[in-house]
Design a protein around this nucleic acid. Structure first.
Length: 699
DNA sequence: CAGTGAGCGAGCTTCCGCTTGACTT
């Protein structure tokens, strides 16, 4: 009874997983609760920024978050004091500020702000011992950021509704991402592949056949545009003896890479594991929240939304002890330091395993395949980052034949260094050292055969999840928590589609981009965010008042906005795509059209003919009808059924793939299970055709 | 725990950033 009367100190953090850990560190006198992000924000339904009244924002409790806020207020009333421990960055400061205001309304308890940049007992205890006040200037910087994004988004978007059509959107971040993707597509289209040829020659040493590449012809880089030009060279050198003119050895030191930030994790997971950004974050969240190992639940990685490569002292000591034990020769004298980007807000550590001692292989049985893969790359990258560099030796051998210079080179690892910790992350050269021929200057070789090979110059690559995230991060656009949602929103708006792993703009996406770039080039610009961040810094340093910053941006923006609203003619170009289907009602061609609920087939004879139907995805194996996407009653998940329902009740929750089963002709679907990962399989339960996929891009 | 079944062509939609769960019978 008496214990209940002892008032505890209420600590409020953002993430519930963090709350649990911190409560453990702080002990009985503290109660740690989570806000789960922002609880108070601008309403979604209206602008809620009073441009006449000095840009005063109107804040409300976020829909669905009222109970959390009420509970926190209740807890605060019963507490001895409150410590606001939201993340130590701009958004975190704003969360703390809103919480303080809300708690003050209901409870007369002392409220302080505490901050820490890592979840370790030392850091937490130190933070608790050094409370401070909320940094009002930082809060103002967040306010400016929030208001600016609202003004941009909620002004540009209705312009698109009015001039193009409903359901569209525009914003400081998404519209720049769209622009990048569209401009890259322009380059891809403008690119004209050029033919070129290369020449290689085979020679033998004992039993082994080696292939050398032509690198110089008459002392110049060969510029071979046609097969005839290659043959000319071959004619000149055929039958001549080759002489080794030089053998060079180049040694190279290769340093390990820093531990993962969110952006780097998404890039590597996309490139190595074929994970979409969204999937990477979902799986990382699972690892962060914890998996059951034995009877306990273990959070396997640190927080996954971070822009920093910083590592806690405690983790450094642990990983060094681990390396000492497992790879004793690869432990550097001192811990390896990595530079934290100047633009990073640095509120969290890098993404790393919480305990290095949980080696991927030792806990594989407790993880799904995807969890195992993602955990492995996080673990490997972290351990490797604190090991000694690797060393390679490249032997490059030049062989002269007449006026031609051929070269053959091979690289060998001479010191494995951090490569020893890499398994999934290892690349070919790291796994097995390349061969090279044992030749020395003056040796002669006989070329048995020459090969002319035709090539074409490659155009610029389209953006992928990996490369768009990389670019956005480099330009400072978006934050770790938004990289994945940015890609999703472009797809949800039908601005961009995914083809294999590539991001391809749709006709609609390119139209929207053209409008935005034509009339708002300064805003839909990679430099706009950089300028904004620069100004926010001035607000944060209390050099500029946030309203002045916003006003300077808003006045010209508003003028331009009014002008475009008034003078731009509504865009009426057709976005319909022709199909080879004919309307069964009137015989005219059907077209693919984008409606409120996605694409559908419509008769091109509209409005005389009102025939519409869903897009067929596959042929029904039961009755030959069309399989189409359906939604279970409101908010339900999408499923796939036959258009002849209820006569035919064929039904599946798996999305049909474009190809049919080569064995029975039924359609194929992609399934996932924890043991095997993703695979393609025939929908026919009696058919066991299975086609495994190494890559799964969908989440 | 399993079952899930329109419409689009009119009258609602939207921003960025912080965080997790998530339908009905």
């Amino acid at each position: 009874m008496k214990q209940d009367e002892v008032k505890k100190i209420l600590v409020i953090v953002e993430s519930p997983a963090k709350a649990k850990t911190i409560e453990k560190y702080l002990g009985d006198h503290y109660s740690v609760k989570a806000s789960m992000g922002h609880l108070i924000d601008l309403p979604r339904s209206r602008m809620a920024v009073d441009v006449e009244q000095n840009f005063e924002p109107e804040y409300i409790t976020v829909r669905g978050r009222a109970t959390i806020l009420k509970d926190l207020q209740k807890d605060a009333k019963k507490a001895a004091s409150v410590m606001l421990a939201s993340d130590n960055d701009r958004e975190g400061e704003a969360i703390a500020w809103h919480l303080r205001n809300a708690i003050r309304e209901k409870a007369a308890v002392p409220i302080v702000r505490i901050a820490f940049n890592e979840i370790t007992p030392t850091a937490i205890k130190e933070a608790v011992a050094n409370p401070s006040d909320i940094d009002e200037a930082k809060v103002n910087a967040q306010k400016a950021r929030r208001v600016l994004d609202r003004l941009v988004g909620y002004n540009l978007t209705p312009l698109l509704w009015k001039k193009v059509k409903g359901g569209l959107s525009a914003g400081r971040v998404q519209s720049v991402a769209l622009r990048l993707i569209c401009e890259r597509e322009d380059e891809v289209e403008a690119f004209i592949p050029e033919e070129y040829w290369t020449l290689s020659g085979d020679f033998r040493i004992k039993k082994t056949l080696w292939t050398a590449q032509l690198v110089l012809w008459e002392r110049e880089k060969p510029n071979l545009k046609t097969e005839a030009s290659v043959n000319e060279i071959i004619d000149c050198i055929k039958g001549k003896e080759g002489t080794v003119s030089e053998v060079r050895e180049i040694e190279k030191t290769i340093k390990p890479k820093p531990p993962f930030t969110t952006s780097q994790l998404q890039q590597v997971a996309a490139n190595r594991l074929s994970f979409a950004s969204k999937k990477t974050m979902q799986v990382a969240q699972q690892l962060y929240e914890g998996v059951s190992i034995g009877s306990s639940r273990v959070g396997l990685i640190t927080y996954m939304r971070t822009d920093s490569v910083r590592i806690s002292k405690q983790a450094l000591e642990e990983v060094r002890a681990f390396i000492q034990e497992v790879y004793p020769d690869e432990l550097p004298e001192a811990a390896v330091e990595y530079l934290v980007e100047k633009t990073a807000q640095n509120a969290h550590e890098a993404i790393r395993p919480t305990y290095t001692t949980y080696r991927p292989d030792s806990i594989k049985g407790h993880l799904s395949l995807d969890q195992f893969k993602l955990y492995s790359i996080i673990w490997e990258r972290f351990v490797a980052s604190q090991m000694k560099p690797a060393q390679t030796k490249t032997i490059s051998t030049d062989i002269v034949v007449g006026d031609a210079l051929f070269r053959i080179s091979g690289t060998k690892i001479i010191k494995k260094g951090f490569y020893q910790a890499l398994n999934i992350l290892a690349v070919k050269e790291e796994k097995n050292s390349a061969h090279y021929p044992c030749l020395k200057k003056g040796d002669t070789v006989i070329f048995e055969q020459f090969h002319a090979e035709q090539h074409f110059t490659q155009g610029p690559p389209r953006y992928t999840d990996a490369s768009i995230v990389k670019t956005l991060e480099e330009k400072g656009i978006g934050r770790p928590s938004t990289y994945a949602p940015i890609i999703s929103v472009l797809q949800d708006r039908y601005y961009v589609t995914r083809s294999n792993k590539q991001l391809v703009p749709t006709v609609l996406g390119r139209l929207i981009n053209t409008i935005l770039v034509s009339y708002f080039p300064h805003i839909v610009n990679v430099d706009f965010t950089a300028l904004m961040e620069h100004n926010l810094d001035s607000v944060e340093e209390d050099l500029v008042c946030w309203q002045d910053m916003i006003r300077e941006f808003y006045q010209p923006f508003k003028r331009q906005l009014d002008e475009v609203f008034q003078n731009l003619e509504p865009i009426k170009i057709s976005l319909d795509e022709p199909t080879d289907q004919l309307c069964e009602k009137c015989g005219r061609q059907m077209v693919k059209r984008l409606g409120r609920f996605g694409y559908f087939l419509a008769c091109s004879g509209f409005p005389e003919c009102h025939n519409t139907k869903p897009i067929p995805l596959a042929v029904c194996p039961q009755c030959g009808g069309d399989i189409v996407a359906r939604k279970a009653q409101k908010r339900g998940k999408e499923f796939y059924g036959c258009t002849n329902y209820p006569t035919c009740n064929f039904f599946t929750k798996y999305k049909p793939l474009p190809q049919n089963c080569p064995e029975c002709g039924w359609f194929m679907v992609e399934k996932y299970d924890k043991v095997n990962g993703s695979y393609k399989i025939c929908i026919n339960p009696a058919c066991n055709y299975l086609h495994s996929v190494e890559s799964s891009t969908e989440s």
